[in-house]
């Protein structure tokens, strides 16, 4: 049956598939991971804070976002972000940010909730004595956090963080609901145009598979390399 397939369609559309499609997917993954880790770290610190209201607010945020399907959040944010922009800047009309920014903001905010829980566990795995030692040397809360707690916590949780990033890489395919051309979107469009559905979806699956598998293997090697000698 493979004789009926026309895999030339991949070569003909390679630029569109790999540069426009995969390029978007990787860019969105990288930026959303960076933003999500930063915001997730702040959320984790807020959840572990001893201040009165902060842990509850951060906890509510995390629990709400983790209880919603991602596709629904993408959809809602696509319509809501212009209004949030209007509300926060005081503009007279909703601010159109475009599908890319809408997707990036959504993934950052959504993934931050998941990263938060990973980072929180990482921070809690640091022995209390380490914090006491930092304090006893005259370091402030911020200095103890940035020079002692987070560097150790990130080493411990890096494998889990990267695994979550691989999940995020696959989840970016959900941007199809707002008609963005990511890898899957590009493949779908070529498939429709040339009538080559099976070839294109096989191709897309192969790319997702190869990248995810390679990334997992790298995570394993990295894990062995950065382990702290105790």
């Amino acid at each position: 049956m493979f004789s009926d397939f026309d895999f030339d369609v991949i070569a003909r559309s390679a630029r569109y598939l790999l540069v426009d499609g995969l390029g978007f997917t990787l860019t969105l993954t990288a930026l959303a991971t960076a933003g999500g880790v930063v915001f997730g770290t702040l959320l984790a610190l807020a959840r572990l804070s001893s201040l009165p209201l902060l842990p509850r607010v951060a906890g509510l945020y995390v629990n709400v976002l983790r209880s919603l399907p991602l596709v629904l959040v993408i959809f809602w944010f696509y319509f809501l972000v212009p209004y949030i922009g209007q509300w926060t800047t005081g503009a007279s009309r909703p601010i159109q940010v475009g599908a890319f920014w809408s997707a990036l903001i959504t993934f950052t905010l959504f993934e931050a909730a998941y990263f938060c829980e990973i980072i929180r566990a990482g921070i809690q795995s640091i022995p209390r004595g380490q914090i006491a030692a930092g304090q006893a040397l005259g370091l402030t809360y911020a200095q103890v956090t940035t020079t002692i707690v987070l560097p150790q916590a990130f080493r411990t949780m890096l494998p889990v963080l990267l695994t979550q990033t691989i999940v995020l890489f696959q989840d970016t395919s959900l941007v199809y609901v707002i008609s963005i051309t990511d890898l899957l979107g590009a493949a779908a469009k070529v498939a429709q145009r040339d009538g080559r559905l099976v070839e294109m979806y096989l191709f897309a699956a192969a790319i997702y598979f190869v990248i995810s598998l390679t990334a997992s293997l790298l995570v394993k090697r990295l894990q062995a390399r950065i382990a702290i000698i105790r």
Binding site: P127, G129, Q130, A132, A133, G134, Q135, A136, L137, G138, L139, T140, T147, I148, P151, Q152, R155, I228, I229, R230
Partner: peptide
Amino acid sequence: LPKLRARVGMVFQHFELFPHLSVTDNLCLA
């Protein structure tokens, strides 16, 4: 308190060296 603690040395039962830093960096950080 951080300012006061910087002037009072403390040694712990379980050492509490920072495992992600070299010996030199342990001494230099604070």
